[in-house]
């Protein structure tokens, strides 16, 4: 009886991509809102910087993060000495790397979703006695939710498929930092076709479902 290929990389990928998506939402919502509504010096520059991961080669992005987060950098040193956290060659590093690689996939639709909400509706809510948080939760988000969901789904799919940045920052340690994308590459290198095929099928299925969800969410505008 053939043994089932080890699915650890797939489960690790799901965990990394889920946590990366969570991180992207927590950081990305205020950023998208700031870019959509804020009026401040350097807004264009910030908007451009946040889209850089989209155009940089993944290895370049990964190397940048490696330099920034390694023990030899002030940030890496501080993280290790103060919090005992080592991000490099650790699955948490994979979360950070795939978050940075995927953040533009969330920011682009989220920003445009926030921009499409008429600010006059938010003013109407303020005049009806609502504070800023309440306006955001009860008017802005319900009117922007399509773009936000599309951003979440696309960012998740991008984080799930990340290769270069994750490899540079977290390495390729089987059972610890080897995500599905890395495992597929390794399997192909050693000629383990069934393992490469199964992991490809799993990752591709999830990515296709994510794409369908994104399309459905942004496509059907008949219901608010």
């Amino acid at each position: 009886m053939p043994t089932l290929p080890d699915l650890t990389p797939f489960w690790l990928s799901l965990r990394v991509a889920s946590l990366a998506t969570l991180l992207i939402v927590v950081v990305g919502v205020p950023l998208a809102l700031m870019l959509a509504r804020g009026r401040f010096v350097g807004k264009g520059l910030l908007g451009g910087l946040l889209l850089l991961p989209l155009v940089l080669p993944p290895t370049v992005l990964g190397y940048g993060l490696l330099v920034l987060l390694s023990r030899r950098s002030p940030l890496g040193l501080w993280l290790e000495q103060t919090w005992g956290v080592q991000l490099v060659f650790n699955w948490v590093g994979a979360v950070i790397a795939s978050s940075v690689a995927a953040v533009p996939m969330f920011l682009i639709p989220a920003r445009s979703a926030f921009e499409s909400v008429d600010p006059a509706l938010e003013d109407a809510a303020r005049l009806l006695g609502r504070g800023e948080w309440s306006v955001f939760v009860s008017v802005t988000v319900p009117l922007a939710w399509r773009g936000l969901i599309a951003g979440v789904v696309l960012a998740f799919a991008r984080a799930l498929g990340d290769f270069g940045a994750t490899l540079m920052v977290a390495g390729d340690i089987p059972g610890r930092t080897q995500t599905a994308s890395l495992a597929i590459y390794d399997a192909v290198q050693v000629g383990d076709t069934p393992r490469a095929g199964l992991l490809t099928l799993l990752v591709a299925s999830i990515s296709i479902v994510a794409l369908l969800i994104a399309q459905r969410t942004t496509g059907d505008r008949s219901k608010p």
Binding site: D123, A124, R126, L127, L128, G129, R130, G131
Partner: peptide, 9 residues
């Protein structure tokens, strides 16, 4: 602030 003005528009 707007929310405390109690003005209808």
């Amino acid at each position: 602030p707007l929310r405390h003005r109690r003005i209808g528009l």
